[in-house]
Simulated scan of single mutants.
Amino acid sequence: MSSVEPENEGAQLQPAISVIAQYVKDLSFENPKAPESLRPRESGPQIAVGVNVSSRQRSGSEFEVDLRIDVSAKSGDDVVFNIELLYGGLFTVQNVPQQHLHPFVNIECPRLLFPFARQVVADAALRGGFPPLMIDPIDFVQLYQQYMVRLQQAQQQQSQPN
């Protein structure tokens, strides 16, 4: 008589992520020169986009992640418009080894939030009287790597004697 092992026995569980909720935590649209800023102009404004991610563990497998997007549109020295969005999500993360948890949460969670936050920014620009602003896709792996480099540099500076 031979023994039959269940198919899943001995197999590693795959990392899993699920979105519990996503939401706008804070949204600001400024159009300080309206209505003059809405007049046709020879060239479009220079647009700068800043992105930041922060996360915190809420319970064993629950994480809250904030995706901050700051947009500044200028024409010369004049501000055409500013958009500040803090978009949050609550996630359940399972089957991720502890040593991989921080990068997983700070890369995969904002990657899931981004399309929705991008739409909020586009809608804010449109409702402010401008064409919808479609932010280019963001490489959250590169953003995380840059964060880790800055963190290591800060730690090295703190550990050096004055």
Rank of each mutant, 00 (worst) to 15 (best):
V141D: 14
N162M: 05
P103F: 02
S28I: 05
E5T: 13
D78F: 03
F104H: 07
Q145M: 14
N52D: 14
D78K: 09
V149N: 14
A124K: 00
Q158F: 00
V24C: 02
V149P: 14
E108A: 08
V24F: 00
V141Q: 11
V105D: 10
G89M: 01
V19T: 12
E42R: 02
Q119C: 00
P161N: 07
S61K: 13
V65T: 10
P35M: 08
G44H: 13
L38G: 08
G88Y: 09
A73L: 05
V51N: 05
N82A: 02
P103G: 09
Q99K: 12
V141L: 11
D136Q: 14
N106E: 14
Y144W: 12
V4R: 13
S3R: 13
F81H: 09
M1G: 10
V53A: 09
I135T: 02
S159Y: 07
D66F: 02
Y147K: 15
T92A: 13
P6V: 12
V71K: 05
Q156M: 13
L67I: 01
V49I: 15
G10L: 09
P132Y: 10
N31L: 00
A124S: 05
R58Q: 11
Q22N: 08
D136K: 11
I107N: 09
S75L: 07
Q99L: 08
V51A: 07
Y87R: 03
Y87T: 03
R68Y: 01
R41E: 13
V96L: 06
A117F: 03
V65I: 09
S2I: 10
Q12L: 13
S75Q: 15
F140C: 04
P103L: 08
Q156H: 09
N162T: 04
V49R: 08
F140M: 04
F29S: 03
D136E: 15
Q152S: 13
K74S: 07
V4Y: 11
N31H: 01
P115C: 05
A48F: 07
Q146N: 15
S59H: 02
P97A: 06
Q142M: 11
Q152M: 14
F140S: 03
N162Q: 12
Q98H: 06
A34Y: 04
I47K: 01
S28K: 10
D136L: 12
E84Y: 04
G50E: 15
S61T: 15
A73S: 09
Q99A: 12
Q22R: 02
V120N: 03
V79K: 01
M134C: 07
L85Q: 03
S75P: 01
A16Y: 04
E108M: 06
H100V: 00
V79S: 04
F91R: 00
P115I: 08
Q153V: 11
P15Q: 11
Q157F: 01
N82T: 06
Q98P: 00
Y23Q: 01
V120M: 03
L133R: 09
P45L: 08
M1E: 08
H100P: 01
P132G: 06
P97T: 10
E30L: 07
Q160W: 03
I69N: 07
G128D: 09
S18P: 05
L101H: 05
D77T: 07
D136N: 14
S59Q: 11
P15A: 11
F116Y: 11
E30M: 02
A11Q: 15
E108N: 13
Q146A: 14
D70A: 11
S28F: 11
G88E: 12
V65A: 07
I135C: 05
E9L: 14
G50F: 08
L151K: 14
R58T: 02
S72Q: 12
P137C: 12
